[in-house]
């Protein structure tokens, strides 16, 4: 196996751009996914009537279909019925759609892990439902949710590789294109793997650290 190091230096700018795009899309997608997940989990926790059923249908659809097909449908299918979205917008919508359902699941089980007696005590000192959420349930649910939350962030970041199916020039697609032009497969794939490691290793380390930091709800009471 041989490597053309000069080639790798030459194409470095392409990878730099691709890496930033990957990070940007993942970040936006994850932020929206957190919002969607939070809203869905609160609806499910309080079992708000009609909404709770809609959320359930959404969760099942999002969790039981591949992201690639979701993206193909958005990117190639929707324009045929008059809705045209750019590749990047499709990517963000797809990641939010998928990620929202994973986040909702993690947050909901986090909320359910908060002891019933905590909720009762909160009521006994006169807190309203909203105050109960704000001061008691969400802070504790958060610390229960961190491991699942971390796993989801890493999962969603990796899922951005699927964006290469809809012509977004993120890391994987950039690699594919460069391979098609220069046939330097070893070098291109090597840089691709390094690219993901550059993003995911620090993230993994950071999330492990975060997990240790916020574990206050687990001991104590």
């Amino acid at each position: 196996m041989t490597f053309d190091w000069q080639y790798m230096i030459d194409v470095l700018p392409h990878y730099k751009t691709a890496l930033w795009l990957t990070l940007k899309l993942a970040f936006i997608g994850i932020v929206f996914a957190i919002l969607v997940g939070l809203i869905c989990s609160i609806i499910q926790y309080f079992k708000i009537k009609a909404l709770s059923n809609i959320v359930q249908v959404y969760l099942e659809i999002a969790r039981n279909t591949p992201l690639l097909i979701q993206l193909f449908f958005l990117y190639y299918g929707l324009p045929k019925v008059g809705i045209t979205l750019s590749g990047e917008v499709c990517g963000i919508i797809g990641l939010t759609f998928l990620g929202g359902s994973y986040m909702a699941e993690v947050f909901r089980s986090g909320m359910e892990a908060v002891a019933k007696s905590q909720v009762e005590t909160g009521k006994a000192i006169g807190l309203s439902n909203l105050q109960l959420m704000r001061y008691v349930i969400i802070p504790q649910a958060f610390s229960y949710s961190v491991p699942g939350f971390s796993a989801n962030c890493i999962f969603l970041l990796k899922e951005t590789s699927v964006f290469s199916g809809i012509a977004i020039l993120e890391l994987t697609n950039t690699t594919k294109n460069l391979m098609g032009i220069f046939y330097k497969t070893n070098e291109a794939l090597f840089m691709l793997v390094v690219g993901y490691l550059i993003i995911l290793l620090p993230l993994t380390i950071f999330l492990t650290w975060l997990e240790r930091r916020v574990r206050h709800a687990e001991f104590g009471n």
Binding site: A115, S117, T121, G122, V136, P139, S143, N221
Partner: peptide, 8 residues
Amino acid sequence: SYDLFPNL
């Protein structure tokens, strides 16, 4: 169950 809120 002396439920103090562990996050506070």
